[in-house]
Design a protein around this nucleic acid. Structure first.
Lengths: 179, 179
DNA sequence: GTGTGCATGTAAGGAGTTACATGATTGC
DNA sequence: GCAATCATGTAACTCCTTACATGCACAC
């Protein structure tokens, strides 16, 4: 059985919410998964073709006039495969790459006294992410009892937590300077 | 001015703590940065040579008997370049890839009633990361006033926060089943 | 008639991991 | 003597992003 790559798993996951075009999938990912899972057209379109060749998704033409549009839907095999993956014990990819933390980690070595500038830069960034998730979740109007909206709520909570941590650090650094 | 790639920035950052061999750098990254920044030998060794060619690090031979060992140290130019990056306003890479959240997000579509299995799997994983960071920070004995140990403390706090969130979700799911 | 959004796709390249190869030293 | 650790390195590969190319539809 050919292994599915991470993008393939994510695409099957998006299609479990309903049939979509490549364009729709990108919009869905940007709107809801983005804070813990990103994808670009360059990975989505080729992968959809591969999944179709594997029989895990079915393509149907949905052109409007002269504008082409292909809608993909999970096949029975695709749904089974997705379910199998969700329930499997395979190690879960968990990657975090945060240049802000990296900067902060070494700031006292190369720029002692300027750590606060790094903290402020990070605060701005997390504020932007928070605004983006909030805007999106308000628009989406998902059932709050379902796991999708719970995961979105976690995104908000996570960035709020980090924001508070950074604000506390900022105060600590400021009070140390006075002493 | 040639752009430094992310690995180059991280390597310069590690060297700001003192001269190290490629092997040391890997051990340092695994021990302290790992939860927000990973690196493999396959990226470290070639990058060190490139940094040496750019004059940002200096290499000195430190062989013991027949076993070779090369120690790298920041040059003045390297330290200046690192400082410049830390204080710059360049956008900070922030990437998060969490298959656990992805699974959770779509679990109710393909495996309703089995969400708790995913939650338990995630809890295990975060517990492992917590244990790893705690072991490492106890061994390291860094000055708690300095940013490096503050960042490590954030790692612990973040995974504790996530653990608590998952435990609450587990309880919520269980009480819904009873109703 | 023009800008914005819908829609699909590819080529080139960057970034990084995995797996492998090789060998010395140290502690038991 | 054997396992674990120290130590360096490369080749093949995966994964993904960026930049580009193309064209239709709709609202103003």
């Amino acid at each position: 059985m050919d292994e599915l790559n991470p993008t393939a798993r994510a695409i099957l996951g998006v299609l479990s919410f309903g049939p979509s075009s490549g364009y729709d999938i990108k919009a869905f990912v940007d709107g809801t998964l983005r804070f813990f899972w990103a994808a670009s057209y360059g990975s989505i379109y080729p992968e959809l073709k591969r999944l179709e060749a594997m029989g895990l998704v079915g393509a149907s033409d949905d052109a409007t006039g002269g504008r082409k549009r292909t809608v993909y839907a999970l096949t029975e095999a695709g749904r089974a495969r997705l379910r199998e993956w969700v329930l499997s014990d395979d190690a879960l990819t968990y990657e975090m790459r945060d240049e802000g933390l990296l900067k902060l980690f070494l700031a006292s070595n190369v720029a002692p006294g300027d750590e606060d500038a790094v903290v402020r830069q990070m605060l701005l960034r997390h504020q932007e992410v928070l605004d983006a998730i909030r805007t999106v979740t308000e628009t989406n109007d998902l059932d709050p009892q379902r796991t999708p909206s719970r995961v979105a709520a976690y995104g908000v909570a996570l960035h709020e937590f980090t924001t508070q941590w950074l604000e506390r650090l900022e105060r600590d650094l400021a009070s140390e300077d006075k002493e």
